[in-house]
Amino acid sequence: MNVLINQESRELPDGATLADAVQAWETPAVFAAAVNLQFVPRTAYAQHRLAEGDRIEIIAPITGG
């Protein structure tokens, strides 16, 4: 199935989860993830099944002042 991760097209196997998508992407040490603009708790990544065309955002915090 085709999904977008941070606006880049990625091919994942049918039945893939958010955990699979995170593994396929070079994630920073600390990050949050959203699917179709809905935040997903880290504890739910392995259970959150993806669908064709889902939009995944992997977001790293920015510090500064």
Score class of each variant (00 low, 15 high):
Val3Tyr: 04
Phe31Lys: 10
Ala21Arg: 03
Asp14Arg: 09
Pro28Arg: 07
Gln38Cys: 09
Tyr45Gly: 00
His48Thr: 14
Ala29Gln: 14
Asn2Ala: 13
Ala33Thr: 03
Tyr45Gln: 05
Ile58Glu: 00
Pro41Asp: 08
Leu18Cys: 06
Ala60Arg: 08
Ala51Ile: 02
Leu37His: 09
Glu26Cys: 10
Ala24Pro: 00
Gly65Lys: 01
Pro13Lys: 09
Asn6Thr: 11
Val35Ser: 05
Ile5Trp: 08
Pro28Val: 07
Ile59Gly: 01
Ala29Val: 13
Leu37Thr: 10
Val30Pro: 00
Ala51Asp: 11
Leu12Gly: 05
His48Phe: 13
Gly64Thr: 03
Arg42Ile: 08
Val40Asn: 04
Asp20Pro: 02
Val40Ser: 08
Leu18Tyr: 00
Ala46Trp: 06
Ala24Asp: 02
Ser9Asn: 14
Ala19His: 02
Tyr45Arg: 07
Arg55Tyr: 05
Ala44Cys: 08
Gly64Cys: 07
Asp20Ser: 08
Asn36Ile: 13
Leu4Val: 06
Phe39Ile: 15
Phe39Glu: 02
Glu52Tyr: 01
Ala60Ile: 07
Ala34Val: 05
Arg49Val: 11
Gln23Arg: 09
Arg42Asp: 06
Gly64Ile: 07
Thr17Pro: 01
Ala19Val: 03
Val22Gln: 06
Val35Ile: 15
Gln47Lys: 13
His48Gly: 01
Thr17Asp: 11
Asp14Lys: 06
Pro13Gly: 09
Arg10Glu: 10
Thr17Trp: 10
Arg10Thr: 12
Pro61His: 07
Thr63Gln: 13
Ser9Thr: 15
Ile58Pro: 03
Tyr45Asn: 03
Leu50Ser: 00
Ala51Trp: 03
Gln23Phe: 01
Glu57Phe: 08
Asn6Ser: 12
Thr63Gly: 11
Ala44His: 14
Met1Phe: 12
Tyr45Ile: 05
Asn2Trp: 10
Arg42Gln: 14
Asn36Gln: 12
Ser9Gly: 14
Thr27Arg: 06
Phe39His: 09
Ser9Arg: 15
Pro41Gln: 11
Ala51Gly: 04
Glu57Met: 07
Asp54Asn: 13
Val3Asn: 08
Gln38Leu: 11
Ala34Asp: 03
Asp14Gly: 09
Leu37Phe: 09
Val35His: 04
Asn36Leu: 11
Ile5Gly: 01
Val35Glu: 01
Glu57Ser: 10
Ala16Met: 01
Ala32Glu: 10
His48Leu: 04
Val3Cys: 11
